[in-house]
């Protein structure tokens, strides 16, 4: 089964992760059957937006299936708008992301975030938004309502709450069911059995896309979750490949 990975990263991490170079990404794509990957810069997310976006732009290559997201940091709205103008018209950049409220410290429905997103929204490319708790999901839903003509993807599908109740991913699933412009992306560290089945059952397989969080995580982890899930092969194909192909026009 072919795979398009809509949630991946290029760059270093502040953990003992050493397979993060372009050649490592290509090797992992080959190993796991990933045809195309959409990357955001870890440097842009965790440190320097401008330098990170530039690093990323240098490795993108459609012949190798390497596409990118422009990262924006709402703490720097004007600079973010410059980054959008610089990259978002480039066909190798397929969207905006992974907008990360935890690293920037700014909620995605804040005034600063909305002004940046409004600028990017004109390009009609999808937004990948990090969601790992109930507050993240709530703020994303506000954006989804504010920009009904744009596609938003809940990165990590709402995430995992420490209590083990699954409340945040359940909330994300409900929101994806309610709003036609909200999709779910499924990677995370802890995979509670039943979550993908519930997402397919409630939001529908058409609203779910495969992401790996490569190189923070190995694609093997999330591929394993999909293959362990009690869902149909048709639904797996939509999740692994077909939905992303359509949404990102790949």
């Amino acid at each position: 089964m072919l795979i398009i990975d809509v949630h991946a990263h290029y760059g270093e991490w502040f953990f003992p992760i050493y397979r993060s170079a372009k050649k490592d990404i290509e090797e992992m794509m080959n190993l796991h059957g990933i045809e195309k990957v959409i990357l955001s810069s870890s440097k842009a997310i965790t440190y320097d937006m401008v330098e990170g976006n530039m690093d990323l732009s240098r490795i993108l290559d459609s012949n190798k299936g390497l596409y990118g997201y422009v990262y924006v940091n709402p703490n720097y709205p004007e600079l973010s708008k410059t980054e959008i103008e610089k990259y978002l018209g480039n066909p190798l950049f397929k969207g905006v992301g992974e907008i990360h409220p935890d690293y920037s410290g700014v909620s995605v429905d804040s005034e600063e975030s909305v002004s940046v997103i409004r600028e990017a929204a004109e390009y009609r490319k999808p937004f990948l938004i990090h969601t790992y708790n109930l507050e993240n999901v709530r703020a994303l839903v506000e954006l989804v309502k504010k920009f009904p003509g744009n596609i938003f993807i809940a990165g990590h599908m709402g995430g995992t709450v420490a209590s083990g109740t699954g409340l945040s991913w359940k909330k994300a699933i409900e929101a994806a069911k309610e709003y036609s412009n909200l999709y779910l992306e499924i990677c995370m560290t802890l995979f509670e059995k039943g979550k993908l089945e519930e997402a397919v059952d409630k939001a529908g397989a058409d609203k779910i896309m495969f992401g790996s969080d490569l190189t923070l995580l190995t694609p093997a982890h999330t591929i394993g979750m999909v293959l362990s899930a009690e869902i149909s092969r048709n639904d797996m194909e939509k999740i692994f490949y077909l939905n992303a192909k359509k949404v990102f026009r790949l």
Binding site: L190, H221, I223, G224, L227, S228
Partner: peptide, 16 residues
């Protein structure tokens, strides 16, 4: 962590 978690997710980390 089965059956609370998906078996293949952890299996494939080691296998690959």
């Amino acid at each position: 962590g089965m059956p609370l978690e998906y078996f293949q997710a952890s299996y494939r980390i080691v296998e690959s």
